[in-house]
Write a protein that binds this DNA or RNA. Structure first.
Length: 206
DNA sequence: TTGTGGATGGTCT
DNA sequence: GACCATCCACAAG
């Protein structure tokens, strides 16, 4: 298991530490595990892109708790995204898990995500990753450092420094200049770059 | 192969 | 009532 103390630090070192770690979940189709290859850091108070920027609400309460817990939220009316909390109790911070490489048998994973064309697509993108592991609102607040949790975070060897890349966060308009996205160079499971938001609202009568 | 736009609902102002 | 830490189908080249 990953030790909670390794995450009770600022969001950038925590994000860096999570690269290469294994996220494992027990699902109805069997155990599914991925190696994290892409993450993004979010920090309350000074980060306009963070859910916690405007203070504590019922939705983001987990972000204000201790490190090493799962923060799941619902987005775009149909997707879930999963974060790992970091920093200390009372200070909001989290790392969004954006992509992973499948470590377990593709069989159960394919049952969960039948539309994936390649194995590398199974957990490419935050909503796909959450879907693959069956993460929903029900799992919000789980302790990822508890071996008896349905979802667990295992501490693998850190990724070599020369394989780690950083850049702007994906799909984020606020604070788009911050290079708070970390990924493993060369992984086919890293989600493609999309420029942050070109706002096209429906029915836009000029 | 790449680019574009629609779907869909909780959360907060 | 506007905004979203997105994904997928489909069209065009």
């Amino acid at each position: 298991m990953l030790d909670r103390s390794e995450l009770a630090v600022d969001v950038l070192p925590a994000a860096r530490r999570l690269l290469g770690c294994t996220l494992e979940a027990d699902t109805d189709d069997g155990t599914v595990a991925v190696r994290l290859v892409e993450v993004e850091a979010y920090r309350g108070a000074d980060d306009p892109a963070s859910h916690s920027y405007r203070g504590r609400t019922p939705r983001n309460a987990v972000m204000f708790g201790p490190a090493g817990f799962l923060y799941v939220y619902f987005v775009y009316g149909m997707h879930f995204c999963a974060n790992v909390t970091c920093l200390t109790d009372g200070v909001a911070g989290a790392v969004l898990m954006r992509a992973g490489e499948l470590l377990t048998d593709p069989g159960p994973a394919r049952v969960r995500r039948p539309t994936a064309r390649r194995d590398a697509d199974l957990a490419r993108g935050p909503a796909r990753l959450a879907s693959l592991l069956g993460l929903t609102r029900e799992d919000n607040g789980l302790d990822l450092t508890d071996p008896s949790s349905r979802v667990r975070l295992l501490a693998d060897d850190p990724v070599a420094a020369d394989l780690v890349r950083t850049g702007p966060r994906v799909g984020v308009a606020a604070a788009a200049e911050l290079p708070w996205r970390y990924w493993v160079d060369g992984s086919e499971a890293v989600s493609p770059y999309r420029p942050g938001k070109v706002r096209t609202r429906r029915g836009g009568a000029a």
